[in-house]
Amino acid sequence: MTNSVLEGTMRSRPVYGVLEPRPGKAHLIVADGEGAGAVVDLVARAGETAPAMLARTHIIYMPGPNGTDAFESLKALGAAQAFRTHDYSTAQPRLKKVLGDAHMGLQIYTTGTEGLMGQVLRDVMEAGLPAQAVQTEHRGSTVRRVQCVHCKGITENVRTDPFQCSHCGLHLFVRDHYSRRLAAYQGVNIDAEDPGEVPPAVERFK
């Protein structure tokens, strides 16, 4: 599978790359959905150093928002630890423990949807580790995590533009403005000036 191409350009959005094995004392990998494929490719790139790398690798995996679950392909890699969970909020306590216990030389890799990678980057920074210690690679769904600027509620897995806020019910358009601290795009009321005039929802994110 090839690396995803994301629509548009926006200066507040992170740029995602391709995972490359780096020498490290330990390796932490957080992936969802199609990100499993990027992890398999990463290990393949490690070549003959793969066994030594896998012996110090901890994988945390969850299915993607589209239902893709490729955990079996990760389990088959034979990493020291491979853990499957339902979603990010369930994975978070485990991730925070690993980050809190981290020593110098931890390499962090995250791959899959933008919502997952954004939250991993946020939690890494909150744990006081440098964002540069994290490599990212986008795979799979392009659904967005969006914060309603009015009620501050986060709606996960937004597929259409506009969409309805899952908290306050306002109709929001997805502004091309991204906050790394919130790991979310900004949603702004689309019919504020003409209440009730909501254009049809278009599936922009799949």
Partner: peptide, 13 residues
């Protein structure tokens, strides 16, 4: 929303 952003990020829109 913008707190924590770099100069280019908060001017993105």
């Amino acid at each position: 929303f913008d707190i924590g952003m770099s100069f280019q990020e908060w001017h993105a829109p």
